[in-house]
Design a protein around this nucleic acid. Structure first.
Length: 203
DNA sequence: CGACCGATCGTCT
DNA sequence: GACGATCGGTCGA
């Protein structure tokens, strides 16, 4: 038996975003809104390394109303709307004024599957429920109104239940959908759990 | 205020 | 594997 612990603030601030993205594999993302809990184990992440990363919304120190939250101290949520439809949930990391973030791209569902089916309008559980970042946010009830939420106190939590993923089962790839980033699109900043059916795309 | 574009998804082949 | 839907964020005028 292992106790379940909410990740401490130091988890998000003391290391490079790429290392944290890898460490988030196997952790549990949980939301509790109106007393209803839904959760899943993280099986796919992507690191976005701020000002120096051509794929990041904060590339070149870009600072807008939308990206402002990324410049805060790590350990909070950055949620933005993509393609006008999909709410994408990111974990802000590093110190204040270092706008690093990690996109959570896929989960293996754990708790509240019925509620997730209701939110997504799906009839039955299949691998599409929490495959891909848009689906993850929808299933957990996360939307842009949750941007800035503290990941320890506000209803969205990332937790460690002691589950470990063997190093040999972690695979690195280039990030998805960032061709606009030029050379930076080739960076191996995406982490996936090998052969997990919830992972959003091959290679 | 108008135009362009996107860290995607679901459907169809 | 390919493609169209869809609409807020962003930026230029």
């Amino acid at each position: 038996m292992h106790s379940i612990k909410i990740l401490s603030p130091s988890f998000y601030t003391g290391k490079d975003v790429v290392k944290i993205a890898k460490e988030l594999l196997g952790k549990i993302l949980l939301t509790r809104f109106d007393g209803v809990e839904t959760s899943g184990r993280i099986v796919e992440t992507e690191a976005y390394a701020g000002e120096l990363d051509g794929a990041s919304h904060a590339y070149g120190g870009r600072r807008t109303a939308r990206t402002e939250v990324m410049y805060q101290e790590g350990g909070i949520a950055y949620v933005y709307l993509c393609y006008g439809i999909h709410h994408l949930f990111n974990v802000v990391t590093n110190k204040k004024d270092t706008p690093h973030a990690i996109l959570i791209r896929a989960l293996e569902p754990i708790k509240g599957i019925e509620k997730m089916l209701e939110r997504t309008g799906k009839k039955k559980l299949d691998y599409s429920l929490t495959k891909g970042p848009g689906n993850v946010a929808k299933a957990l009830g996360i939307s842009t109104k949750h941007t800035g939420y503290n990941l320890r106190t506000d209803g969205i939590y990332i937790m460690d239940d002691g589950f470990k993923i063997a190093k040999k089962n972690i695979h690195l790839t280039a990030r998805i959908g960032v061709d606009y980033a030029g050379e930076d699109a080739k960076l191996l900043y995406r982490f996936i759990v090998n052969d997990n059916p919830y992972v959003s795309a091959k290679k």
